[in-house]
Each structure stands twice: as structure tokens, then as C-alpha cells.
């Protein structure tokens, strides 16, 4: 434990930014810990890591982390991260989002980042609710559950984050929960190492809003539900589909190799430069190109 604490301290902005804003018992801090352990294990230089977030409880994570950090607008973190990655390819750009952030307001950016297969690591912390604004239903709120804006029960089916990511073109897709903290950091490590668009869904909970409205108990009770209701991929594969549908399936769900956007764009640059040398071109200017 003491060793872990030491590891985290090396990556935290300890001067001003604590205590953090999250509720006691929240899962976001566990994801942050897992992210730190993953980065530490890979041995990345702090200068070479950028963490970009959107808006919501998860959006506050970067401010605590001693990297190049950017807390952007609601849903748009992936678009900011895309520009940053293209400008500074050496950076490992990690994008932390919530479920409403990534899949409602940011849904379009999410599927297009996946389709483009840009080399980013997207961590979606899925608590199935808008926590910061007080518990309104999100695109991952399960059917029939209560939310501040679904007082009579929720009637929209939820988005399956991982399946959506795979369909949209992500090269690496994995899922775990905040109960499985060690497994989570291993999956995040793999996601960061993967070149291409990788997604890690970290299933979490919000005991403060969702848990209270649905009478699910304390954070400990909700944590226990993550433990009881989740299975590994190996176990899931032996199950009947109906049985499996009731479970949170953990593990690497998708891992394929294909060239990422920057690799392909490098070809665009090569083809363009084959026509004219850049410096000569600058000298020639607008009049000289045709």
C-alpha cells in the first residue's frame, strides 16, 4: 500500500488541487489510480502524456494529474484530443469521459474518432447517469430505472459502449469495473500501448444520485453489485446468450491491427511532397505553383 501511494504521488498535482471534488465512495478516483499505475508501468515520461477530458464528474480528473492536461467542453474532448495528437504525435493522449459526455452530446465525435482510428486512448467511465447535474438519465441508463428526469421509470434502451466502439472501427476495446481495480489498470495499460483508437469502458456507479433514486444502497453495496454481476469473457463464452445479457462482461473484447490515422496521413504528406519540395514551394508562393 505504501508503495502504491508513493507511485501515485509522483503523478499528482499535490500543491493545490486536493481534496478532490468527488463524493466519498465514488469510482472515478479508482479509475484515476488505475490510469496512474498503467502509465507508471509503461514508464512514460510525464512530459509525453496528455490527459484530455470533457464535462461532468469525470471531466475534473485531469486537473489532479501532473501531465499536459486539458479540461475541454461537454462531449468534445475527443475532437480536442484529435487536434492535439495530430500536432504532437509523440504525446500519448488519453481521453477521459463519462457516459453522457462520450455517448450523448459527444456521440458523433466518439464514433468518428473510432472510424478514423486515430491513436487515442478513450476511457469511458460509465455510471449510467449524469451525476454532476443531479442524476438525470444518460444514454447508458438501463430500461425501467429511475432518474431525476425519469421519475416514472426510464423507457429508452441503453447504448452498449463496447459494441458501439467495435462497430464504429476502434482497434482495441475492453471493459472492466471499478471493483476490479487491478484488472482495470492492466486493460488501460494495453489500451495505451495499442496504436490506434482504443476504448476502455470502466463500469462505475453513482451512489449519490442513481443509487439513492433506485434504492440500491451505499457505495459499498453498489461496489458489491459490480462484483456479483460481472464475469470474465472466458466465463461469458460458456454462457447462453440470454444469461450473458444480464452480466457485465469483463476483459479484452476486441483487438485488431490496422494502420492508424497518422500513419495513413503520413502517406498523404509523402504523396503531396513528391510533387514539390516544401521549401522551394514556400519560395515560389501563390504564383509559382502551377
Amino acid at each position: 500500500m505504501a508503495k502504491n501511494e508513493h507511485t501515485a504521488y509522483a503523478y499528482l498535482r499535490t500543491t493545490k488541487k486536493f481534496p478532490n471534488i468527488w463524493c466519498a465512495g465514488c469510482g472515478i478516483g479508482i479509475v484515476m489510480g488505475a490510469l496512474i499505475r498503467a502509465i507508471d508501468r509503461i514508464g512514460l515520461d510525464k512530459d509525453d502524456v496528455a490527459v484530455v477530458s470533457g464535462i461532468g464528474c469525470s471531466g475534473r480528473m485531469p486537473v489532479y494529474l501532473d501531465f499536459n492536461t486539458m479540461h475541454t467542453t461537454h462531449g468534445r474532448a475527443l475532437a480536442f484530443a484529435t487536434g492535439l495528437k495530430l500536432a504532437q504525435p509523440k504525446l500519448h493522449v488519453i481521453v477521459v469521459m463519462g457516459d453522457g459526455d462520450a455517448l450523448a452530446i459527444g456521440g458523433n465525435h466518439f464514433i468518428h474518432a473510432a472510424r478514423r482510428n486515430i491513436d487515442l486512448t478513450a476511457i469511458v467511465i460509465n455510471n449510467a447517469i449524469y451525476g454532476m447535474t443531479g442524476g438525470q438519465y444518460s444514454p447508458t441508463t438501463p430500461l425501467d430505472m429511475r432518474a431525476a428526469t425519469a421519475p416514472y421509470g426510464h423507457v429508452e434502451p441503453p447504448f452498449p459502449i463496447c459494441e458501439l466502439s467495435i462497430a464504429a472501427g476502434a482497434t482495441f476495446v475492453a471493459r472492466s469495473t471499478v471493483y476490479h481495480a487491478i484488472e482495470l489498470d492492466k486493460l488501460i495499460e494495453k489500451a495505451i500501448r495499442k496504436v490506434g483508437f482504443s476504448v476502455v469502458e470502466a463500469v462505475s456507479y453513482c451512489h449519490t444520485t442513481y443509487g439513492r433514486m433506485n434504492k440500491l444502497g451505499s457505495s459499498v453495496d453498489m461496489m458489491r453489485m459490480l462484483k456479483d454481476h460481472s464475469i470474465t469473457l472466458a466465463v461469458a463464452e460458456k454462457m447462453m446468450p440470454e444469461e450473458r445479457a444480464m452480466k457485465i462482461v469483463r476483459g479484452v473484447l476486441h483487438d485488431v491491427d490496422k494502420p492508424d490515422y497518422l500513419t495513413l496521413y503520413q502517406k498523404v504528406i509523402e504523396r503531396a511532397q513528391a510533387t514539390i519540395d516544401g521549401k522551394e514551394f514556400l519560395r515560389a508562393g501563390p504564383g509559382g505553383l502551377e
Partner: peptide, 28 residues
């Protein structure tokens, strides 16, 4: 691309300016 620069067509205008801000933070 002739100058080694980046052109990208984004999914909408919101993302376009976001990408520009990200790239500017990256020094371009």
C-alpha cells in the same frame, strides 16, 4: 501536406474548432 502540415475534415464545425484548439495547444 506539401509543407508537412495537417488538413483534417472533421465530423462537424464544433469538432473542427475543437481540433484547432487542440492543435494550437500542441504548438501548431
Amino acid at each position: 501536406p506539401k509543407l508537412g502540415g495537417i488538413f483534417i475534415q472533421m465530423e462537424d464545425e464544433i469538432a473542427s474548432l475543437a481540433a484547432c484548439i487542440g492543435a494550437s495547444a500542441g504548438g501548431l
